[in-house]
């Protein structure tokens, strides 16, 4: 029994939707258009909300700003440092967890633990781990005869420190998704392959990898999107600075500085729009790739 909507039923439904819609319209949908518009405000009186002049000046300015170039470069390095390693490690761990029965959920609990912790608090812990003289990281590196590294003060290592921590923190989330994906693969494929004499490596390459591709796709897209927006980690690990000599300046950090310390709302919005376009492009590219290579 499918009913057709009537004015009466619609009115009723919209009453149920109203609380959600009011919040969404005010704080999600309107600001999308508003921030797009704001990125073209070149002369803006914030206190009276009067726009004196529109133009593409904000985009010109940020693209001529060396700091924005640094922010873009750092963000890309960060994302490319975190996402592939995180995917490879989490897939490996998920495969191992999928192959054991005893303690499997115990391990899963531990691997997922960092995910529920406050980014600020855990970044402070890592800030202490990275302490040049008394930190744990340099102590462990010392076991392998590696000289102490100035993780927090040497511009060369700031991003690397951030990448290591982010991989550690996000691993559990990817493992959970991979475990779900692995669970969805029908056992009978493996049994059939075994009968045909395929070795474990062949079974992995020809069954697991292709049948897991929707999950891998999902993990990649969410990984890219979430890591492009890195901010809390930077702020907390470098104590409210974007790393030594802007070495950990990211796009969102740039946006934050423009907005919060420089009150330059137009350029901040422009940086946000650029971030949005990058995320959109990456998603579209991956969707196209997905269509070609993801097997169901």
């Amino acid at each position: 029994m499918i009913q057709k909507p009537t004015w009466k039923s619609s009115l009723k439904a919209y009453m149920y939707l109203a609380p959600m819609l009011i919040v969404m319209l005010t704080f999600n949908i309107y600001p999308i258009f508003k921030s797009l518009a704001m990125s073209f405000y070149t002369d803006y009186n914030f206190f009276q909300d009067i726009v004196n002049e529109y133009g593409i000046g904000n985009f010109v300015d940020i693209f001529q700003d060396p700091n924005f170039h640094i922010a873009l470069k750092n963000t890309f390095i960060f994302v490319l440092g975190v996402v592939p390693v995180s995917i490879a490690l989490s897939l490996l761990i998920a495969l191992m967890l999928n192959n054991i029965k005893v303690l499997s959920s115990f391990f899963r609990t531990i691997y997922f633990l960092p995910f529920v912790t406050s980014t600020v608090a855990i970044s402070l812990v890592w800030n202490w781990i990275y302490h040049t003289r008394f930190g744990l990281m340099n102590y462990f590196l010392g076991w392998f005869g590696i000289d102490p590294v100035n993780w927090l003060t040497d511009p060369k290592y700031a991003l690397l420190g951030l990448i290591i921590m982010s991989i550690w923190k996000g691993l559990g989330f990817n493992i959970i998704l991979f475990l779900v994906g692995l669970n969805n693969i029908d056992e009978s494929y493996y049994s059939a392959a075994k009968i045909d004499g395929a070795n474990p490596w062949k079974r992995f390459l020809n069954i697991t990898i292709p049948l897991l591709s929707p999950t891998t796709f999902l993990v990649t897209v969410t990984g890219f999107i979430n890591n492009f927006k890195v901010f809390d980690e930077v702020y907390a690990m470098f104590q409210g600075r974007p790393g030594p000599g802007n070495s950990a300046l990211t796009v969102v950090y740039y946006l934050y500085e423009k907005f919060y310390t420089e009150y330059n709302y137009g350029e901040a919005a422009a940086a946000g729009v650029v971030l949005f376009v990058i995320i959109l492009l990456v998603t579209v590219l991956q969707l196209a790739y997905n269509r070609k290579f993801v097997h169901y």
Partner: peptide, 24 residues
């Protein structure tokens, strides 16, 4: 159409919304 529009908004990074929301 409403559902599609709402789902589409999930694509937009929340950081972009901070500026207008602050102004509001």
């Amino acid at each position: 159409i409403l559902f599609t529009i709402l789902i589409a908004t999930m694509m937009v990074p929340g950081e972009l919304l901070i500026i207008p929301n602050f102004v509001t």
